[in-house]
Design a protein around this nucleic acid. Structure first.
Lengths: 131, 131
DNA sequence: CGGAATCCTGCCTGATACTG
DNA sequence: CAGTATCAGGCAGGATTCCG
């Protein structure tokens, strides 16, 4: 993977195991959960199990590709469960696991912060753009 | 902006003002702070004001471009302050604003979650990959 | 030292078609 | 319904170079 080469080289130059910020697994996990689609999916699953089409409708602007991809990685990481009902047509529901709910609690705070500080940020942008 | 067209169209199809998940400013803000570089920069600034080169060293794997770009947007959004000291050579320090610290408190929880649940996620991946 | 400018690659998006 | 597959296009992001 050529995209990681330089990053790993820079990491190696540090020549120390930095549990805070390095190429260690916790850093990779932090990178993964610091993703807008992950955040939105977890936030959308707050109100209980949801079907695929419900999620697609709730998260305005997500493409099928990214929604599926995000749900797959979340499932792989043990944050959501995927349940297939053998109805006609098939019904698929996604639900947070206990692990997922523990992360979702943090995500909720992030969402709350965004909503409650939105105006302050917009004000800061105005004064920055037109001083 | 052609990239927003389809997203906005899907959002419009909902025909309702969804403060939770839509094309409203809070959603855009949530998208922005759900970024790995934003998360890492805010986490790195936890220990007080830092110089540009310090940040680059702390956040292993970040490119100058992304570090500069992230710091600029954070400054524009009123989350960090940029201070230029007229030394030779020039010294630039970045520091969290009060607004930035309020977000950083949430980011810290996210980082803590990643560190404390890393093993559970790795275990989930193992059982998913090789069942 | 702290960037800005440039070029370039790869992923994401958007659109469309097809399946079980 | 819930995807998978494919392809064009654009933009995020990496590598490199140069400057005050």
């Amino acid at each position: 993977m050529p995209t990681m080469t330089a990053a790993q080289r820079r990491a190696s130059e540090k020549a120390e195991y930095d549990a805070f910020l390095a190429g260690c697994p916790s850093r990779q996990l932090l990178d993964r959960i610091s993703d807008k689609w992950v955040t939105l999916v977890l936030a959308a699953l707050e109100s209980g199990p949801q079907r695929y089409s419900q999620l697609a409708r709730t998260i305005a602007g997500v493409s099928q590709k990214m929604l599926t991809q995000t749900l797959r990685t979340l499932e792989r990481d043990g944050l959501v469960t995927r349940t297939v009902m053998a109805t006609v047509p098939v019904t698929v529901t996604y639900e947070l696991t206990e692990l997922g709910r523990s992360l979702q609690a943090v995500i909720t705070r992030l969402k709350s912060w965004a909503e409650s500080h939105m105006e302050q940020v917009l004000a800061a942008r105005s004064s920055y753009d037109a001083p």
